[in-house]
């Protein structure tokens, strides 16, 4: 038996759920609709009130000139036309993309490693607790603590660097600011993400590892051939969530660099916020948000398609 047999386990096509018994004709069309409505209703109400309505309203506002305090005035697509010529918007996209790539790569790799180590090495609650600790601290405070620790002249990190005989590092200078901020956010979220992956790892039946072990597959091979494919639904979740979360990075930047120096950290969300609340240009901010929304939806769609998030190799095993 090779490890491939695990992957070859029978599975249903994507997006479908096995039906135990052949249902009567009417039920076939409606399926479980009555029960489903019951189950989804509370969430649907929350969705409609607190997400859908604000989003629709935002989409409308993107077609207006709106300064928050006086009623919006409809101006058609003017905001979107302006957006294409807005140098700061394109710069913000570039900076954000840079941040997202750095943050996602470091966070995913470290979290995955951490989750596997936690899973394989120890059952210690203390270790698991420690790993989750940074997430207990609010974003803003995490940013402040690191800002203080990384301070060029006073920070403990730079003191150590100098003590080791190197030159002090301007962590929030125009070249390093984005990598630094990505690092700080990785620090805060790695335990959280590792825990998500960890929960996914624990859903994998021990039998598949036993099968792989009997095959004599190396740990490395088992990881790539068995663990990772079985983790797919969870990894899809993790990736989609972290990409969306990274695109919306804001707090850390607001606390440390405020978009500077020279716009080096003016990420898209910070730009939107600045436009809406400091410059009362809410209509334009709404247009930027709509573009961001479409962009994120597109990325998430591609991610979900690529990762075939709707299916699990485990089903029917």
């Amino acid at each position: 038996m090779t490890s491939d047999t695990v992957r070859a386990a029978p599975r249903t096509p994507p997006g479908t759920v096995p039906e135990p018994t052949p249902p009567p004709p009417l039920r076939r069309r409606l399926g479980d609709l009555p029960v489903a409505v019951l189950f989804v209703l509370p969430a649907a109400i929350g969705f409609a009130l607190f997400y859908l309505w604000p989003a629709v309203r935002g989409a409308y506002l993107s077609l207006t000139r709106y300064n928050v305090l006086t009623p919006p005035r409809f101006i058609g697509l003017e905001n979107y036309e302006k957006l294409f010529g807005d140098r700061l918007f394109w710069n913000a996209l570039k900076v954000t993309a840079e941040y997202v790539v750095l943050n996602i790569v470091s966070q995913t790799v470290i979290s995955m490693l951490l989750a596997v180590l936690l899973y394989r090495l120890t059952k210690s609650m203390v270790v698991r607790g420690i790993v989750l600790l940074p997430y207990l601290v609010a974003n803003v405070v995490v940013a402040l603590v690191w800002f203080w620790m990384l301070d060029f002249q006073l920070g403990v990190v730079n003191n150590v660097i100098e003590w080791l005989g190197f030159d002090r590092v301007a962590f929030f200078g125009s070249d390093l600011a984005i990598p630094t901020i990505a690092g700080i956010n990785t620090w805060r979220h790695m335990g959280y993400t590792a825990l998500l992956i960890f929960a996914g790892l624990q859903m994998i039946p021990p039998s598949v590892y036993e099968a792989a072990a009997i095959d004599g597959a190396s740990e490395w091979r088992t990881f790539w051939r068995v663990t990772l494919p079985l983790l797919r639904p969870v990894m899809a979740l993790v990736m989609v969530l972290s990409v969306i979360g990274s695109f919306q990075v804001f707090d850390t930047i607001a606390v440390t660099t405020s978009g500077g120096p020279i716009n080096a950290t003016r990420v898209i969300y910070f730009y939107i916020y600045d436009l809406a609340f400091n410059r009362f240009n809410f209509g334009y901010a709404a247009a930027l948000s709509s573009v961001l929304f479409v962009l994120l939806a597109g990325i998430a769609y591609v991610q979900l398609r690529l990762s075939r998030a709707g299916e699990s190799d485990l089903r029917g095993s």
Binding site: F47, P54, A55, S289, A300
Partner: peptide
């Protein structure tokens, strides 16, 4: 549709909410 709610920036939802 539900998942797209993840992408609605909080800046939009805060005020109407």
């Amino acid at each position: 549709l539900f998942v797209t709610a993840l992408m609605v920036p909080p800046i939009f939802t805060t005020l109407p909410n």
